[in-house]
Design a protein around this nucleic acid. Structure first.
Length: 746
DNA sequence: AGCACGCCGACT
DNA sequence: GTCGGCGTGCTC
């Protein structure tokens, strides 16, 4: 027995402060103190919520006292604190804010200055919902039973043994007065029971059984199962083309680990994808399943979180923040579609759930399965160098081959949105009763200027992105920095007068398609047409019911949804993805093309894919088009090695932001000096790529100056960034953001 | 992040 | 003479 704990606790506070704080615990609160609970503590003139990290000793200074303990039970375990600490140190973010981000939203209380805090603050956070359950009194008191409705209600309760207020309301409609009467007479007794808001409770599902596996799936399942049985950390890349049955591998692996008394955490990139997947899990498993994503209300999310905390679920499915789910005995973490950029949080606490999955998996001695048809280039590299075990699912479960794409050279062609080959294919497909998917990556009417003679594309001199034509102003505008020039009539590069607008938006293409195929039923799916609840579902349902012949869409048609009747995919333009000045633009293009090709021919034939492009020789298109996956990764890795980009170097980003352009620019010079000094101290192994791609970007009304740092080893770069965080304080009005692990460099 | 302290311009 | 601008400094 150890009674040597002190009355001093260490507390993390969710404010942008890099230190933790110490408080004295008054004797009366001492029994309630435990690491993982929240406390209300005086902080300057106000009171704030803090998180108890543990006990501390030997503090010289006079300490202030804890005002209250806000929880009856700890919110996080020592093991969870370990991952919070790791994330705080790695992402250079205050521990208190990391903990706040890891816990369900809205449980924190803060008071203004002064001492009074209302009752809500004391109980801490979201309301726990309860329902009233009525039981018959045993033995029944010797009173006269009321007649009429009250009598029928009483006999119902006696018959059932118990009934909730909601059930009784369902049968007897308004029955509150009768129930009150019965209770007053002592004929029924009541009990308050906690209920969870369950977003899926109402839907019933029909159970299913494990599907037969093909040899690839069997091997993948067996190797993951074997790894789980060793009880050690084991990371995998599960590489499988669209339709190769990755989900079935997850399901059967999870079935195994549930039998062994362990649990599973499944991360998915998009909220829109969760219902489908959750239903598949609910059909298969009878254990508790919790769902965590940003589409839930704070109350629902809090309830799901409490079910996990109490050990009532064995499977958690959720978006990136679910990596912090309070699940214990984790046997496997799945990161589905691991290449998706939505795993990266790019505001506030900038973490990457895909990377944290590997860290948490290591801490929990779990298997981590990164699943993707088009993994990140860095992930692929990790797999081929043996840091991850590569598991491949080469075949589609329906046995159909992945189609090859026909690439059409659009250079020098009439500035026609849809070239004859694609138009003819569409007409033929329409005549055969097939559905056609027309993809282009630009909404609205926006276009850009290109020269038909030399292929020159009008770009922003600062940002290198293509300028967008705004018809009303007759100017070309940069969407990043607001640079604008009047529309030129000759090519600024070669002087040719054959300049033309290319890169039509979805709206224009829709118009063109309707003109060209007046008999076809045409629909459009982009951010404009899917706005609001159910927008997605409405369009997808029409496609599934074959009420749409031609679907025109952006990015979002490439992700996740099954379009079983699509037999032709026409890619009208890939240029906007290819032209993004980011070292990952080839990777992104390859991923997008591959996903789109996976959309074709899931029905009765293998389908046809046509890509029309100004870059017919680009390796990302050629390798995607011929499904030579390994060749793409090999080519891309060679290119990365040559140009010095990840995985061969590590990157970090530092952003200065402010509302005044001149102040940001001026401060960037001081910061550049500071970085150079730190770089010398660090031994010069960190290269400053300088502001890239643009010196000064304007984003949502704020100016941003961006430095990109490059280093051959991560530790040198991380050391520099950590020192910068400690030593550099920006002047007022300017904020500094450090991204240890930048994914989006734009 | 708040919230205070602190030192300079237009008002009862 | 004060009210209030936001610069800078601190919070166990």
């Amino acid at each position: 027995m150890n009674h040597s704990t002190t009355d001093i606790i260490e507390v993390a506070i969710p404010l942008p402060l890099d230190t933790t704080f110490h408080y004295r615990v008054p004797e009366g609160l001492m029994p309630r103190i435990a690491p993982g609970k929240r406390v209300l503590v005086p902080f300057g003139r106000r009171k704030v919520t803090g998180y108890i990290l543990g006990f501390a000793t030997g503090e010289e200074r006079e300490l202030r006292e804890v005002a209250d303990v806000l929880d009856d039970a700890p919110l996080f375990t020592p093991r969870e604190l370990e991952i919070y600490r790791w994330a705080a140190a790695y992402y250079l973010h205050p521990l208190g804010e990391v903990i706040k981000a890891a816990l369900p939203a809205g449980i924190n209380v803060q008071s203004r200055r002064g001492t009074s805090t209302d009752g809500d603050a004391m109980t801490g956070g979201r309301r726990v919902l309860t329902e009233t359950v009525y039981h018959p009194a045993t033995p029944p008191p010797a009173v006269e039973v009321p007649r009429g409705k009250a009598s029928s209600i009483l006999s119902h309760i006696q018959q059932e043994g118990k009934a909730t207020a909601a059930e009784l309301r369902g049968i007897f409609a308004d029955c509150a007065p009768q129930l009150r009467r019965l209770r007053e007479l002592g004929l029924v007794v009541t009990e308050e029971r906690e209920v969870y808001r369950d977003p899926f409770r109402e839907e019933s599902v029909t159970p299913d059984a494990p599907l037969p596996l093909n040899p690839g799936q069997t091997e993948a399942r067996d190797r993951i199962v074997a790894a789980i049985d060793t009880g050690r950390f084991a990371p995998f890349l599960l590489h499988g083309v669209t339709g190769s049955g990755k989900t079935e591998v997850y399901l059967q692996t999870i079935a195994h680990l549930l039998d062994a008394g362990r649990t599973a955490l499944v991360l998915v990139p998009e909220i829109a994808l969760t219902p489908q997947l959750v239903n598949r899990f609910r059909r298969r498993f009878r254990c508790g399943i919790a769902v965590l994503h940003s589409g839930l209300s704070d109350g629902e999310r809090y309830d799901e979180w409490r079910r996990i905390r109490r050990g009532e679920v064995a499977i958690v499915i959720g978006a990136r923040s679910a990596i912090f789910a309070p699940l214990e005995r984790i046997g496997m973490i799945v990161v589905d579609e691991e290449h998706e950029s939505s795993y990266k949080q790019s505001e506030g606490f900038r973490y990457n759930a895909r990377d944290l999955a590997l860290v948490r998996g290591k801490m929990e001695k779990a298997s981590v399965v990164l699943g993707s048809a088009t993994p990140q280039v860095t992930t692929w590299h990790a797999a081929v160098t043996g840091k991850l075990t590569l598991l491949s699912l080469p075949e589609r479960v329906n046995g159909l081959p992945v189609p090859h794409a026909e690439i059409i050279d659009a250079r020098g062609k009439k500035a026609d949105a849809i070239l004859p080959l694609l138009a003819d294919a569409t007409a033929a497909n329409l005549a055969n009763g097939g559905q056609t998917l027309v993809f282009l990556n630009r909404r609205g009417f926006a276009t850009w200027l290109t020269c038909e003679e030399c292929g020159h594309v009008l770009r922003c001199p600062n940002c290198a992105v293509t300028l967008t034509y705004h018809q009303r102003k007759n100017r070309h505008v940069c969407h990043y920095c607001d640079y604008a020039i009047p529309a030129p009539s000759v090519c600024p590069d070669c002087g040719s007068t054959r300049v033309t607008h290319l890169g039509l938006g979805t709206e224009q293409v829709e118009e063109l398609v309707r003109e060209r195929f007046p008999e076809a039923r045409v629909d459009r799916m982009d951010r404009d047409t899917t706005r609001g609840r159910g927008g997605h579902a409405r369009i997808l349902r029409k496609v599934a019911e074959r009420k749409t012949d031609i679907l025109i869409g952006t990015q979002m048609v490439a992700k996740g949804h099954d379009f079983p009747g699509i037999t032709l995919v026409g890619i009208v333009s890939v240029e906007s993805t290819l032209n993004i000045p980011d070292y990952r633009s080839a990777e992104r293009t390859y991923q997008l093309m591959t996903q789109l090709m996976g959309r074709a021919g899931r029905g009765e034939d293998a389908g046809r894919v046509i890509i029309q492009t100004l870059n017919p020789d680009h390796y990302a298109l050629i390798h995607a088009g011929t499904a030579s996956m390994e060749e793409f990764y090999t080519t891309e890795l060679a290119f990365r090695q040559e140009t010095g980009y990840p995985p061969f170097v590590h990157l970090g980003a530092i952003y200065l932001t402010g509302t005044a352009a001149s102040a940001v620019e001026q401060e960037s010079r001081r910061l550049a000096g500071q970085i150079r000094t730190l770089r010398r101290e660090a031994g010069g192994h960190v290269e400053i790529l300088g502001p890239s791609p643009a010196p000064l970007l304007k984003l949502r009304g704020r100016y941003r100056w961006q430095f990109l740092l490059k280093a051959p080893v991560r530790s040198a770069l991380h050391r520099l960034l950590a020192r910068l965080r400690r030593t550099y304080t920006p002047p007022s009005g300017i904020r500094i953001l450090i991204d240890v692990d930048p994914v989006d460099l734009m």
